[in-house]
Design a protein around this nucleic acid. Sequence first.
DNA 1: ACCTGAACACCGTTCAAGT
DNA 2: ACCTGAACACCGTTCAAGT
Lengths: 195, 195
Amino acid sequence: MTTADQAPPVPRTPRRAHARRNHDRLLREARSVFAEHGIDASLEDIARRAGVGIGTLYRNFPTRQALLEALLHDGFDDLHVRANELLGSSAPGEALTLWLRLLAAHAATFRGVAAALIAVIHDERSALHASCRAIHTAGAALLARAQESGDIRPDVSPSELFTLINAIAWAAEQTPEAVDQADRFLHLVMRGLQE
Amino acid sequence: MTTADQAPPVPRTPRRAHARRNHDRLLREARSVFAEHGIDASLEDIARRAGVGIGTLYRNFPTRQALLEALLHDGFDDLHVRANELLGSSAPGEALTLWLRLLAAHAATFRGVAAALIAVIHDERSALHASCRAIHTAGAALLARAQESGDIRPDVSPSELFTLINAIAWAAEQTPEAVDQADRFLHLVMRGLQE
DNA sequence: ACCTGAACACCGTTCAAGT
DNA sequence: ACCTGAACACCGTTCAAGT
């Protein structure tokens, strides 16, 4: 045996490129299938549409949560950035409402996401837990500002607000009119939270 | 062949009593299993705990919906009766709030009921559709009175209200504190609906 | 190293056979 | 008439075999 035996004998790039393409295809098809059937959609279906074996899907995303996490990650990041921007706004109440509208839209990305987010915030072992907590904290800062300025009642907690917004997103998911409903519900609920 | 051949040769009562007992046992165990695992719980589990074969469960309740319907039926009736009583109340706003609290509690009977109720109200073929519509109508009458008396904003529709209450019940289901949460959310939302 | 798909496990549903 | 449970179908997940 020589050391040469241990080194890979052929260039890896093509294989890696191929693997990467599978990964991307899985994400694309997962997004499409989740959008159509909700987050409990068939994983087999996703693999088939991506043109890979079911084993490849599991290799790339060991759990359904991992796949979901990969799909929601960018949205989470975006929400985080937007929250920080809005913390500089001179109208705390409006800033909060605007951001909550974004949060509701994100929670309604696919059918089932709102329920998943609430589950995740209560489950520390979840892959989404950290990013979900970060969003929660960002929202809490916006809420605190709106409360200090007198726009929002002082007795509303960040957790209550988070749950309520997800409930709104959930309600919108259930009805045919989805998006319009979400805005309407948000409007009504925010009235209740005002000072 | 004589006509005697066609008549049942033995008394039926014991067999009927036995069948009836199976029916009752299935309902009792279903209530208990649904309470523990939500309305998607294993039917096999329910049959086993009731001490009958899975086929007997299907014979008594051809679909999961039929089983659910049987369990929720009394609660629906009760809500209907209470709505009619409360229509005679001299405080329309309070009457509505009180009744909505009952509705939210009913929608939280088992995990998953709130979602089922919203699905049912949009699906005319569902076994629960008629009783769900009756509740919806009863609630609409209470709402109309509260709006005429100036307690509730005139632009809130019965459907919106129904969906919002189910959303509250759903939110309460998701969190560990369940019941307290539901009351708190109802309070906040009702503030938003006030004139 | 990565991929495949057969194999396994699990559960909902049906139905032929039994009483 | 009612009950049973084996049989079937379906789908999520794992893993031995292939490249």
